[in-house]
Amino acid sequence: MADMSVAHTAGASKLGRFIIYGLLALVCLYYLMPLFVMLSTSLKSLDEIRAGNLLSLPGEFRTDAWVKAWDSACTGVQCEGLKGFFWNSVSFVVPAVVISTMIGAFNGYALTMYRFRGSDLVFGMLMIGCFIPFQVVLLPMAQTLGALGIANSTLGLVFVHVVYGAAFTTLFFRNYYVTIPDELVKAAKIDGAGFLRIFFSIILPLSVPIIVVSVIWQFTQVWNDFLFGVVFSSGDRQPITVALNNLVNTSTGVKEYNVDMAAAIIAALPTLLVYIVAGKYFVRGLTAGAVKG
């Protein structure tokens, strides 16, 4: 799918390409505009915000909005900024990502390389778990977490994210492992290796790309999650997305748009950084999930 520009007269094709590049650039501006607006607003003073407009640049770069967002902005009753919530998120995102990726790898391996009676059925059942709207499990899960005494705890959120994330990671790993020839596992069996040995010596070393994809995908999903966070946690245990929403909607005193924007960027920063560093894998995860999704 490449050579689209055959057999056009040079002039027409030049104009055509100009239009194409123009359109693409315009669309780039559209996608970048909100980020730019967030950033510039977060660096303005409130007076500047009132005086200028969305696209006007900050006169001087002020970081007080950032400091306030991190340290002292009000997120409901308490006014301690986002910092605590940021670390809350880190504390459950990391274990949730690691555990769900490990589970996905093992499941994917067992389900593709060791087909047993009903393994396709199991896989199909797991996949349906990717499709359901989570609203349909929220109430029972809230009851269960309460009964187990892990409601409103890091452990509870890790648990929820692992349980509902494992279907996705399994899907990733399975779709990756079906591309690895069965014969590799057969050869290793004949060489005398068992289930675990084959996994650790042969399959796992081949899985680096999909591990990266899975980690990035899960990280983005769990970090950005709002639904589980708002339902299963409260007070100072909430994840950063919930805190951000509270911060923005806390209506005491003047509306500090610059603080809101700084807070939004802080909440977005980890996933944005991951995207910048490993965007290639992120996209691969998206499309890999979508192929079957």
């Binding site: 020839p181 014969e183 590799l184 057969k186 050869a187 290793a188 010596s201 042969i202 070393p205 081949l206």
Partner: peptide, 9 residues
């Protein structure tokens, strides 16, 4: 094996 099935890693 037909595909040789050498361990790639």
């Amino acid at each position: 094996f037909q595909s040789y099935a050498l361990y790639p890693n």
